[in-house]
Design a protein around this nucleic acid. Structure first.
Length: 491
RNA sequence: CGGGGUGUAGCACAGCCCGGUUAGUGCGCUUGCUUUGGGAGCAAGAGGCCGCAAGUUCGAAUCUUGCCACCCCGACCA
């Protein structure tokens, strides 16, 4: 009998938590709001990093590393930026501990107070732009195309594994350009990199758009985003790419001398994705049997489970299993032969299924006699006996098929959960009873957006990039509108 | 920061109201035998500052006070 975990229908957030914990992805730590990412979970993140890092480098970027700590005064320099992040900053005030009076405890040494307090970075724009000032003098120094892989801290009140934790891992790209056009192009290039990654590796369809002023990154002129839909019909922002204009260049006085010998402020972008993508991966594909990982990001793509009654059988099965393993490794398939003799086959089936391994092979005495392998695919749970001959190629195609099937399923789901609304009543009905993305007219004001949010909890997820102009009336105020925007309840 | 809840074995919990032998149950763990094509069975074991501190009492997991931590629901957010 299978162990009982929550199903999506019963309790969606419990289902999510069960998967994170029982698939061995992460666990709560001793530190409030912070998690331990366990080896299996981290290996998925490493796959994401590997793919993204290559894409960044292929588009001309280099990695660098900037400090974890940021002098408090840096934060004051860009007004919107401070306002956006001040409420969730961790502050370092002392640099030494000492024994307390009663000798039972350690306390911050009041004689070791920092002259200037340090902020633990919630994002690195300020420290980076303070640094870039020294890197830029001439147009010949531009562009600067730098990315950093780092941890950041945002002191959240309520946290959820991967989706929102006080500390999280991410990458942040920070670029500097001579012209506005070039910076804008960079912003869009990186949005496309993210789109390509999320759609073709994570197998999650996304909508590209820009953010409304309310949802825009603190300090950005324009925020581009990709929005994905989870299985509970809530939206999740999967990545953002910001056009920062000259805001940070002005705040940190970063100027260059142009060809015609004029002092000009540089133009900036920043862009990032975080371990939150792990949450997206889980919620987009997994089912009531556990995690489902798209093959292109699976740390283990194929697991081989031997079935045997005695040592003699085990040896014969292992011989075949090891041969298949070697053959697959030569074809760059990540394969694991689970030859533990401490667990039974049924246990292994369940375990690997719960951990989302895309393809499972089982080999037992019957297969040896018939020259077959039992092949099970995780996405559909279908099992089929394959002839042993040419198994590697067949599995390779199967992996491709799983990958595209997952994408198609996610796309179908999104299409089924995308609606339009033309009146306020209709809008409320869709948001409350159906969920999903709702295309609706909006008068373009922050007040209306705020009011809609307060009454329905739905926010504007994106002003889609590929939309067509369409005359209409704002669902809330009835004022004229030129286009539909996408509303949804979001993570 | 508001409202609610919980701290007892690695995990999930019972016991507390109504104080009284050696603090239990399930899962997990160890050992042995039998098993092995979808989470095995039987038997024998190991494992506890009952969140912390003080108080009441002959006696506290249980009653009182204080503290701490975490979880859930709201406001804020990638």
């Amino acid at each position: 009998m299978a162990k009982k975990f929550a199903t999506r229908k019963e309790n969606y957030s419990q289902w999510y938590n069960d998967i994170v914990i029982n698939a061995d992805l992460a666990e709560y730590s001793a530190v409030r709001g912070c998690m331990v990412i366990k080896p299996y979970g981290y290996s998925i993140w490493e796959e994401m990093q590997r793919v993204l890092d290559k894409k960044f480098k292929d588009t001309g970027h280099s990695n660098a590393y900037f400090p974890l700590f940021i002098p408090k005064s840096f934060f004051n320099k860009e007004a919107d930026h401070v306002e956006g992040f001040a409420k969730e900053c961790a502050v370092v005030t002392h640099y030494r501990l000492k024994e307390s009076e009663d000798g039972k405890d350690l306390v911050a040494d009041e004689n070791a107070r920092l002259e200037e307090e340090l902020i633990v970075r919630p994002t690195s724009e300020t420290i980076i732009w303070d640094t870039y000032r020294n890197w830029v003098q001439s147009y010949r120094d531009l562009p600067i195309l730098v990315n950093q892989w780092a941890n950041v801290v945002r002191w959240e009140m309520r946290t959820r594994l991967f989706l929102r934790t006080a500390e999280f891992l991410w990458q942040e790209g920070h670029t500097a350009h001579a012209t506005k056009e070039e910076a804008l192009e960079e912003t869009k290039t990186m949005l496309n990199v993210y789109t390509d990654f999320v759609e073709n590796w994570m197998a999650i369809p996304v909508i590209q758009g820009t953010k409304s002023p309310n949802e825009r990154f603190a300090g950005a002129v324009e925020t581009y985003c990709i929005e994905a839909l989870m299985q509970d019909a809530r939206a999740l922002q999967a990545g953002t790419s910001h056009f920062l204009g000259q805001n940070f260049a002005k705040a940190f006085d970063v100027k260059y001398l142009s060809k015609d010998n004029k002092r000009e402020y540089v133009w900036a972008t920043s862009w990032g994705v975080s371990t939150r993508l792990m949450g997206a991966l889980i919620m987009a594909h997994s089912d009531d049997n556990g995690l489902v990982i798209p093959p292109k990001l699976a740390p283990i793509q194929v697991v081989i489970v031997p079935i045997y009654k005695n040592e003699e059988q085990f040896n014969r099965v292992s011989e075949v299993a090891n041969r298949i393993k070697k053959e697959m490794q030569d074809q760059d398939i990540a394969v694991k032969y689970d030859n533990r003799d401490t667990q039974k086959p049924g246990f292994k089936f369940s375990e690997w299924e719960y951990k989302g391994v895309p393809v499972r092979l089982a080999i037992g005495p019957r297969d040896l006699d018939n020259q077959t392998v039992e092949v099970a695919r995780r996405d559909t749970l279908e099992k089929e006996a394959y002839q042993l001959a040419d198994i590697t190629n067949k599995v390779k195609h199967l992996l491709e098929s799983v990958q595209s099937n997952l994408y198609q399923k996610a796309l179908d789901f999104r299409n089924e959960n995308t609606h339009t609304a033309d009146t306020w009543e209709e809008f409320k009905d869709v948001v409350n009873n159906k969920g999903g993305f709702v295309y609706a007219h909006w008068d373009g004001t922050a007040e209306t957006e705020q009011a809609i949010k307060e009454e329905t909890k739905a926010t504007i997820r994106a002003l889609p990039l590929d939309d067509k102009k369409e005359e209409g009336k704002c669902i809330y105020t009835g004022k004229p509108s030129e286009r539909r925007v996408i509303f949804a309840k979001a993570y």
